[in-house]
Computed example of a mutant assay.
Amino acid sequence: MSLLFVSDLHLDAARPATTQAFLQLLDGEARAAEALYILGDLFEAWVGDDDPGEPGASVCAALKALSAGGVPVFLMRGNRDFLYGQRMAERCGATLLPDPCVVSLHGVPTLLMHGDLLCTDDAAYQAFRRQVRDPAWQQGFLAQPLAARQAFAAQARAASREHQQGAAEAIMDVTPAAVIETMARHGVSRLIHGHTHRPAIHSLRVDERPAQRIVLGDWYDQGSLLRVGPDGLVLETLAVPGTPAADRA
């Protein structure tokens, strides 16, 4: 059996094919997994645990069924779904993970992160992140009517797209020095994260020792799945029927 890792699915009612592909994973391979880790941005937006809409309702129900079947589910907040609360975790039968956190994967201490904290060259984003992660800001935001929160989320997504289009590509990726410093501070030689939508397995050196950084891909045109077993790991691309990538295959 393997531990499964995904990130950046950005599930949204406008992209039902991606939601269906994830639900098939939950009802298929994931049922035989040791555990499922979702490292942030499961949804395109999450404006509060009181939102009863789709695809949140269906996905949370499927995750809870997976957990009830004996497969532990772990959720980490991303930059799109940072408002997860304990109510959300209970709906999914999941455990919320802090970002960052160190877990032992088949005896290997591994740092798990969403990844946005590593993009330190993007000063504008880091300032926004500090603002929306402030408990007082979140309390005020969650006190607003659901419709107002949904409108804010739509505006924030539009602003994010504009920022990404205007920013240099290097700024949108992790800062190498931040990666090394973070791994050294946590005393690990392996890091798994998402956020940048650049799936790859990188070799580097931390404190003069060989190290590894695994980047999970997004689920826009195709899926991305990391399997970690006792004999190693495999990062795989998954076809999502109904997406442009699948149509080109």
Rank of each mutant, 00 (worst) to 15 (best):
D27R: 07
S224M: 01
L42R: 09
R248I: 11
F128T: 09
T110A: 03
R129H: 06
R227M: 11
A154I: 02
G223I: 07
Q24S: 13
A94L: 11
H197W: 01
P100N: 03
V234E: 15
F152T: 02
M172F: 10
V6P: 02
A21H: 12
E236N: 13
A159V: 04
V103I: 00
I171C: 10
L3R: 15
S189V: 00
V103E: 07
I180V: 11
I171L: 13
E169P: 10
K64T: 08
Q155F: 03
H193F: 01
S2Y: 14
V47G: 08
L191C: 06
L118H: 09
P230E: 14
P135I: 09
G69T: 09
D51I: 07
A68S: 15
A170E: 02
S58E: 03
H186Q: 14
A159W: 05
Q138H: 13
V108F: 01
G53L: 14
A249W: 12
V103L: 07
R157D: 05
S2C: 10
L235R: 03
P98T: 02
A32I: 11
Q138M: 12
A177V: 08
R129Y: 04
E208Q: 14
H10M: 00
A154E: 01
G28R: 11
G85M: 13
A30I: 00
R185Y: 14
D134W: 01
E162R: 13
A151S: 08
F82E: 05
G28V: 06
Q222T: 15
S67T: 06
A65S: 12
P16H: 07
F43D: 00
H195V: 06
V47L: 15
E34F: 03
L25D: 00
L112V: 03
T243P: 06
D247H: 13
A239Y: 08
D122H: 12
G194Q: 02
V234T: 11
V108T: 06
L112S: 05
P145A: 12
V215N: 01
L36S: 04
L117S: 09
A94G: 14
L105Q: 06
T95P: 10
P145K: 14
R133E: 08
N79A: 08
D49N: 12
H114D: 02
R185H: 15
Q150H: 00
I171N: 07
R129W: 12
Y125G: 11
A45R: 10
P16S: 00
H197A: 00
V234S: 15
D247I: 13
R185K: 15
P109G: 04
F128E: 05
A136V: 15
I180N: 12
R130K: 14
R205Y: 15
V6K: 08
P52Q: 10
G223Q: 08
T237W: 07
V47K: 04
W219A: 03
D41T: 07
V59D: 00
L25E: 05
D122M: 04
A168S: 14
G166D: 06
W219S: 04
G115V: 07
Q131D: 05
L63W: 01
